[in-house]
Nucleic acid binder design. Structure first.
Lengths: 220, 220
DNA sequence: CCCTTTCTGTGTATAAATTACATAGAAATA
DNA sequence: TATTTCTATGTAATTTATACACAGAAAGGG
């Protein structure tokens, strides 16, 4: 095989190599607000800054597999649905070395995943979306982009992953929508629209402890 | 700085590194059909296969900058609007070494860019979207994904880049839409919808050589 | 136990957006 | 100049989205 030039599709054996990182916006829904899982770094750079959980892609693993591993190591979160958002390649986005990051988002039920800071993380916490501080690296940007993508997906389909319990009322679902989209919705129109999507099944059970005795639904 | 573990956001100085490639779906519109620019490889792997133009990300350049360089070297195409599509990381997607690819798409006027095969490319050609052969690597998949994204973008906004000349008739625009979306549209409804977007300006000029004397428009 | 509160569940009228569809006029061609 | 083939345009019908009010169910307090 002769010398390989820049036009060749990335086959050059001496082509420039670079660290690839995966970062994940883990969204949760708790106390009736949309939250995001952040971790606090105990090392430089950006020591004591909050950032999105993430880490380097591993040899022999795909990006989604690497994300799963990172999240599993950190939070016990496993087997969650991930959605790829974008790829970030600014040269100076990491102060020490060149890192290209691929971001994903995931939707989980916080109560299913008790979180404990491990490794080089000094703290881990769910933040309300409105209360997110200045993050390390360019992670505010990643979060903004992920939230936009989540909103788009929610508007177009009925995708809310594991943000709700298995059984939920239509009101709970509506509040989830309102929180993510950041706008209020009409109750009757929302019910009409959601039900005619034909993706929910009524269980004929009523939610206890709530006035009016609302019906519980589950995903089809 | 102490030893750095997997949870750290890609700061480890000895973290796994990997070649990153950029691949671009360059769409053009010619002879009234949507086309895609493909190049034929003259080296292994996938020698004599058609693939999307692409190449390794360069040290010190972002991904969009790297794409620009690759395309410029190959086709003279410069300063085009790029849209990021997705990132591909299957371990075995390149038969020789691990390569993670980030794909983009671009929309150009083929007549503006005479293409000549250079470097390790033995041929270069515009293919009709319906006539694309089996491509090297996983590039059929990349192409499919880019086309989906283009369709989505076209449906939602009025984005057709440089696929048309500066001045064009509404009929030409409609045919572009029909070609990309793969469906026929009603002429009157299309005109109504497009014009009320308020993104086109009439020029009060008529296109010569065409019966009916259709008005020429340009982008606002 | 009953009264009050607060939630659920439902329908209809209106407005807005989308779709279907036909004819008269302008430019080219023979 | 007659014919062909294209452009330009409006309206009615349908579908979709929005606004809105009241009766019944469960909980809580006295």
């Amino acid at each position: 095989m002769s010398k390989i030039g820049p036009l060749d599709t990335a086959v050059s054996l001496d082509s420039y190599e670079c660290t690839i990182a995966v970062e994940c916006c883990v969204f949760g829904f708790q106390d009736n607000v949309l939250k995001i899982l952040l971790v606090k770094r105990s090392i430089e750079p950006f020591k004591d800054y909050w950032v999105l959980p993430g880490g380097a892609m591993n040899e022999g693993k795909t990006l989604p597999e690497s994300i799963e591993e990172v999240l599993s190591n950190l939070t016990g979160i496993r087997k969650i649905a991930l959605e790829q958002v974008a790829c970030y390649s600014n040269v100076e986005r990491h102060p020490i070395k060149r890192v290209v990051s691929v971001s994903y988002y995931a939707l989980v039920k916080p109560e299913d995943y008790p979180v404990i800071p491990k490794n080089y993380i000094s703290d881990i916490m769910w933040f309300e979306i409105g209360d997110v501080p200045e993050l390390g690296f360019d992670h505010n940007r990643l979060l903004t982009d992920s939230l936009s993508k989540l909103r788009d997906n929610l508007r177009q389909n009925l995708v809310f992953g594991e943000l709700l319990p298995d059984l939920f009322t239509l009101k709970e679902l509506q509040e989830l929508y309102e929180n993510i989209l950041g706008e209020r919705l009409d109750r009757r129109n929302f019910r009409k629209k959601i039900l005619q999507m034909d993706l929910l099944v009524p269980t004929n059970e009523k939610k206890a402890g709530v006035k009016g005795g609302p019906e519980l639904y589950k995903k089809k």
